[in-house]
Design a protein around this nucleic acid. Structure first.
Lengths: 243, 243
DNA sequence: GCCGATTTGTCCGTATGTATC
DNA sequence: CGATACATACGGACAAATCGG
């Protein structure tokens, strides 16, 4: 799979910035210079730059240049970002991960659950509950509901591994977009029996609806995180308020 | 201020989608058609489309078309997103907002606070604590630390209003990017005296470092939200994992 | 303050690739 | 296969902001 040129440039610049090859707080080479060194058009450099800006690596300044505003976070906590599987998170956070399947059952969507999940009433879904451990410490309880018709061959054994691998590699399905909501909810008795909450009486909950590239919602998920290990990072850019 | 063409198109499409002028779950007119109706190049349409896609309004599908995947959220909770002031949030969430200044004092950055905030040691900062109420219910405690040198004329009276208005309109400073982190922390005695926590023993905390368009960090903020009213929304798109 | 050089921001037209139908 | 639609890339043009002389 030949990667897009702007993506190559984006990755290269990102690595260089992370490795301090550009001085922190200073300007990067101009877009024209970069276009010359990468042997591409300025548009292509700009596309890579937009990507970096959206991730908080650089800050373009009209008429002046593009400033490197990267600073390493250096936290020991579990960082989520993008759409990624538990396994991918574990690798990125350099942890040992393991999974324990607590429940695996089919159910039919009723009115109440339809409202919450976005699935239509009567749909057959697979409900899986999994306990996620990092370095032998249980940190997350994942509740997944998958449309059964889209994942007919999903078994308990597969659920213990990476469902995303199965979906993408076995089924060739493409995961496209996911709408996430972060809230804080009271811990349930179920949470407390499986996690050591360290005195907290609540959980950080990430709820998401995931769509495939046909625009079909195939998943609804609730990830319930032990609050002391939960951290979500984000870079926001301010846009002029409407007149 | 003449708005950019892609931004006009973005806003127009967004409104049309929100007002159900395009059927939900169906395809929008093709990029070429839209380019014709807006009398612009396809590139400009694509730029607007990328914006909409990043916000979860549409889903472009290679070779097929762009699907409208907008669905109204319709929650009664307080939704944060982007960089915006308390006042702007209140308007967007259609609430009556009021602010009470609990503390207003100058302080010098020591080693410990420097580590946490990103300010350098010895810098003079203004520490403001404000209680935010929506419809007469106290929901948020905001801790702001501003670089004193950048905001010399910030008074207690101004702090009771919108500091962002003062910064942008009075000083002409431009707020550019903000790095945010969402965590869950134990409620402090201070939290409990000012908020009714409804039995929760924790708070949803949004920590952010905000930079102006010179790349200078001028603000460090901790917004401590009553957990039952906190909600953060996000749209993630999955990118192919590196080979 | 003005002018010119530099740099980013916007927009266009075109060409080509790739996926879908 | 061809037509359609999105994806990538290029080169050029002009605008707007900044900076130095």
């Amino acid at each position: 799979m030949p990667r897009a040129k702007f993506d190559e440039i984006y990755r290269d610049l990102k690595l260089r910035i992370e490795n301090d090859e550009y001085p922190q707080g200073e300007l990067l080479p101009s877009e024209n210079e970069l276009a010359a060194t990468y042997e591409c058009s300025r548009n292509t450099v700009r596309r890579a730059m937009a990507q970096l800006a959206s991730e908080g690596y650089v800050q373009p300044m009209h008429g002046r240049g593009v400033r490197n505003i990267y600073s390493p976070t250096g936290g020991a906590t579990f960082i989520i970002g993008g759409i990624e599987s538990f396994k991918e998170s574990a690798v990125r956070n350099q942890r040992n991960a393991s999974t324990q399947v607590l429940r695996f059952e089919e159910m039919t969507v009723d009115a109440r659950f339809s409202e919450k999940s976005g699935f239509e009433i009567g749909a057959l879904v697979l409900h899986i509950i999994r306990l996620r451990e990092f370095d032998d410490e249980p940190l997350i309880i994942d509740h997944n509901w998958f449309r059964r018709e889209l994942l007919p061959g999903l078994t308990l054994e597969l659920a213990a591994g990476s469902v995303y691998d199965y979906i993408e590699e076995e089924l060739g399905m493409t995961i496209a977009t996911s709408k996430r909501t972060i809230t804080v909810e009271r811990a349930t008795a179920f949470d407390e029996t499986h996690l050591d909450l360290k005195g907290y009486n609540c959980m950080a909950v990430v709820t998401s609806q995931t769509y495939d590239d046909n625009g079909m919602q195939f998943e609804f998920t609730q990830s319930r995180h032990r609050p002391d290990y939960f951290r979500f990072q984000d870079v926001a850019t301010r846009r002029r308020q409407g007149a």
